[in-house]
Each structure stands twice: as C-alpha cells, then as structure tokens.
Amino acid sequence: MNDIIQDITTRFSVTDIINKRENLTFVTCRKENTISLITHLRDREKFTHLVLLTAVDWIEDNLFQLTYILNNPTKKIDIAIRTMIPRDNPVMESAHRLWEQVATYQRELKEMFGIEFPDSPRLNEPFILEGWNEIPPYRRDFDTKKYSTETYFPRIGRGTNDPEEYMKSKLYPNDPTK
C-alpha cells in the first residue's frame, strides 16, 4: 500500500494522504489528474473494482467533493480518491469508459447534486426524481424540513412545551430579572 501511495504521490501529486486503516487510504487529487490517476490505479495497480462514486457538498467552502473508492480485490486494499470541484461550476470529466456502472452514479450525481459529466450516457434522463423543479435536493442548501412543511400539512392538535419555559410560566412568571 505504502509503495502505491508513494508512487502516485510523485506521479499524480496527490495530497492530504490519510491512512484510515491499514487497508484504506484517502488521498486528494487535483481535478485534472483524477481520471488519469484512476485509470492508472485500475490498469497498473489492479484496483479493478469500483466500490462507489459519490459527492459531498462543502457549501461553506463553495466546493463539491467527489469521492471515488477503488478496491484491489487481490491485495484487498482500498484507495479513496477525493477531488474538489467548484460548486458554482460543477463539471467533472466522466469516468464511464473505465466502468460502465459509473454512468449510473453520474446520472444520480447530476440529478441530486447538479454535477455535470459531459459525454456520460443518459446523463440527463431522470434517475430517481420525477418532475422535480427545485434545486438538486442533495445540495446542502436544500432544506428538507422546510420543503416538507411547505409541501405537506401538519397534523392538527400537535404542539409541545419546553420544560424550561413551561416551568417559568408556572413557577416564576413575574421574575423581574428574566
């Protein structure tokens, strides 16, 4: 594992290497190098199994993180490659030529995060959602709670009390210092 990491560090200038476990390492790679790094790992280092591809929204940094987790079934090790792409122009090179199922992942990411993968097959076909008009729902600025309060109706008769406030109203309602 260490040899591989050392090798890709020099070749692809990966950074932020975190050895989470002896068989799981996280590395961060620049956007331009990512697909070639993945190709290298798949073809040269035999990381033939793509575990998953997903995104994390770092809204405060205005970034999307794409995480590709690759697995080497022979050596039984995983490398997770993290790539940061700008959130206001989220475009990433498609990896569907490496594994066909990536197209599915990318379709979901397009739908749920609004990340573009040019050339990815069936990218714009709806995958999970139907007739969705809001912002991509897995973005952090989509508020599920707000959406559900606005879309659905509350049950009549529900209402709760905060113990602190309630005790104040019962035991010391006129405390002048409060």
Partner: peptide, 16 residues
C-alpha cells in the same frame, strides 16, 4: 455531513 450507501443492487439492478 454525508452518509452514502453502497448497495450491491446499485450496479446489479441497473447496468448489469
């Protein structure tokens, strides 16, 4: 921040 599930059917039931 994010929990993502990798389920076998994600590939089995779609592309495969």
């Amino acid at each position: 921040r994010r929990i993502n599930l990798r389920g076998p059917s994600y590939t089995h039931a779609v592309v495969l």
